[in-house]
Design a protein around this nucleic acid. Sequence first.
DNA 1: CCAAACATTAACATACAATTAACATGGTTG
DNA 2: CAACCATGTTAATTGTATGTTAATGTTTGG
Lengths: 226, 226
Amino acid sequence: MIYILEDDDNIRKLVSYALEREGYDVRGFDAPRNLWEALAEAAPELFLLDIMLPDEDGLSILAKLRENPDTADIPVVMLTAKGSEFDKVTGLDMGADDYIAKPFGMTELISRVRAVLRRYMKTAPQGREYKIGELYVDPAKHIIEVSGRGVELSYKEYLLLMALLEADGNVVERETLLTKVWGEYYTESRTLDVHIRKLRVKLGEAGVLIRTVKSIGYKIGGEKHE
Amino acid sequence: MIYILEDDDNIRKLVSYALEREGYDVRGFDAPRNLWEALAEAAPELFLLDIMLPDEDGLSILAKLRENPDTADIPVVMLTAKGSEFDKVTGLDMGADDYIAKPFGMTELISRVRAVLRRYMKTAPQGREYKIGELYVDPAKHIIEVSGRGVELSYKEYLLLMALLEADGNVVERETLLTKVWGEYYTESRTLDVHIRKLRVKLGEAGVLIRTVKSIGYKIGGEKHE
DNA sequence: CCAAACATTAACATACAATTAACATGGTTG
DNA sequence: CAACCATGTTAATTGTATGTTAATGTTTGG
């Protein structure tokens, strides 16, 4: 999702249209207050900010975005009608990730947006971590810890644990676990139970987090049902 | 240190002078081969590349820089005499971090260079060195040391180590390592294992830093999280 | 053009993970 | 309360990924 703040209706619509054709979700705003309202709901992946606006100028908005930890790391591209270098310098040094001088072509806009997003993707944190009681799991680093002590899991045990963690406390049906860990074609046997057991044993004190939901499947942590 | 590759003496000297006044160390090159020679010694923090050059064009140089793990992460700003959007797009999509269309003002140049460097600082606060336990690696100077003693690695061993280091402790899948080190078309064999082994042996006491994550791949470094 | 360094492959070793079978337990239900 | 059924448990067997070594190709630099 890209948020664009631009008071000129023509430019805003043109830009929105161009970006949407590229597959981006776009939401346009003609005044800062609408932007702030939308931000309360959800943050975008990128901002396009006009530097010249009726009431509040683009640079002070940029500053506010950088102050707020929720938006500080979201890339910002400034749109400026003034061609003077002074504005460019100021904008860049305030922490904008790029700027585009009007009038600009849509091809240029798109390539800039893409470039900024690509740079950002490289640094964005991908693998989230899980913490449930004494259990800590970092999938990206393949680290599993219970009370700070590392635990070594085999591949299937790991897949099983991940399947449960990803469900976020919801019950995962036996069949779902079997397909997720063993693939589409599994043969019914005690295999799942045996692996659940080994997982519980290896997790030690955190083993009790894995709960049996009889006749349905298993869940991890919390108290949620279905 | 900034390296600038630009065949026009006037422009090169002008740019060098402007950047030096800002406190940057600058080294100018009028032909690619001189640049490659200098790169064998030490890598810069940023490249300024002219897109139009006598023998080898700037884009192919950009491509070569991106291929080499020593320079792949160094920001590149393209200088272009052609104003057409096509060139800009191409340059950006090749992985340039910014471009500047000639004729450009020195103020703009400096602000762009500063912006790119600032962005880069955010993502690479370590300054392109790696230290993990007794292992020290400086890709820019191509130095690998274990407990202060220099270690000589072959090319593939080096690529392998870099692929692991760049992942920053995250697990790198076998397949990823194979494509990163051996290219898109590799044949499955024990090659990866053999190279991992040679790496571990050459790294001596630091060899244990490379950890096998069975059924997934390898990772380098510790277990800590906070 | 040869020697050395390096990369790859093959063949085998090893460790340990996955599966299965056989049996145990424990709770539910009529 | 007894039969039933789902799950737990254990241990033996089978299977597989990776480690290791040595031989064989392949570059490269003098």
